[in-house]
């Protein structure tokens, strides 16, 4: 469980990035964090594994104050994928990146091999196993960063902009995997600007703006609340926009899913007669 208690954070340069956050994330929850550039999302998630400590207030991970433990210890439970893969990668080969965490956490040799093979395969990186991460394309590098964390299967997975540079198929695979993990009881937290991706994932959503939480609601509620979203420089997803526009046709406003939309519109168009019949 993650508990954020009246957390403030100010960078040494004087920038106030978090201004009194209170938040509780239960085990097994699936959370999306959205907000404008500079809202403090990255700053917040860096508190979850102790890289940053609040200047005021406290953060508890599974009941433990992050001030009283080390980043390495927290990381066993909280796997953080950085926003910028260049900040996360430092090994000479992709394979070393993946095994680095596994070795530190003391996994057995066979387990290391097994997890490495699996994750490289899953993220389509097998052919780069022996390459340096730094000659890979932007999207491939982001996947190496993901692989390096997915490898040890942490209980709490925190992904800062996991979809950067990913094509739709990669995103779709990632989404399915996240859902699978979440189904197994893992806590998953994603920070993203990718509103369409979030609309497909449908996590519980935290809207952060100027260092404060301005909404904490289900995906349906949060993503159709265009007034609230616009405070954080976000538009609702296309489907939600469409259904807001055509609400006068007698359709519900709070639709974010393309398949749900399909059924509703199909009924509207085909069943126009059916409606009259009723």
């Amino acid at each position: 469980m993650i508990k954020v208690e009246n957390a403030f954070f100010t960078y040494p340069s004087g920038v106030k990035a978090l201004e009194g956050l209170n938040l509780e994330i239960q085990d097994g929850e699936f959370i999306g964090i959205m907000g404008e550039n500079g809202a403090g999302k990255t700053t917040l998630v860096k508190h979850f594994n102790g890289l940053l400590k609040p200047t005021n207030g406290s953060i508890y991970i599974n009941g433990k104050n992050t001030r009283e433990t080390t980043v390495a210890e927290l990381s066993k439970n909280v796997g953080l994928v950085f926003q910028n893969p260049d900040h996360q990668l430092f090994c000479e080969t992709v394979e070393e990146e993946v095994t680095f965490g596994l070795k530190n956490f003391g996994f057995a040799e066979e387990k290391i091999v097994e997890r490495t093979d699996w994750v490289l395969n899953f993220l389509e990186l097998e052919r780069y196993r022996k390459s340096s991460p730094f000659i890979l394309s932007g999207g491939e590098r982001k996947r190496v960063a993901l692989a390096a964390v997915l490898a040890w299967d942490p209980n709490i997975l925190v992904l800062d902009e996991p979809t950067i540079g990913q094509d739709y198929l990669q995103k779709e695979r990632l989404r399915q995997y996240i859902e699978q993990l979440n189904g197994q009881g893992r806590t998953v937290i994603i920070v993203t600007h990718d509103i369409e991706f979030i609309a497909e994932c449908k996590p519980r959503i935290i809207v952060l703006s100027k260092g404060k939480i301005i909404n904490y609601a289900t995906a349906k509620e949060a993503l159709t609340n265009s007034e609230n979203l616009s405070k954080a420089s976000i538009f609702p997803p296309q489907i939600a926009q469409l259904f807001t526009q055509i609400a006068d046709l007698g359709l519900p406003k709070d639709v974010i899913d393309v398949y749900e939309a399909k059924v509703l519109i199909e009924n509207l168009l085909k069943g126009g007669k059916r409606n009259e019949g009723v």
Partner: peptide, 16 residues
């Protein structure tokens, strides 16, 4: 600092 952060975020104990 960036590299240390990356390493301890993947379990390298440098604070103890």
């Amino acid at each position: 600092q960036t590299i240390i952060d990356a390493q301890r975020s993947r379990g390298l104990e440098v604070e103890k």
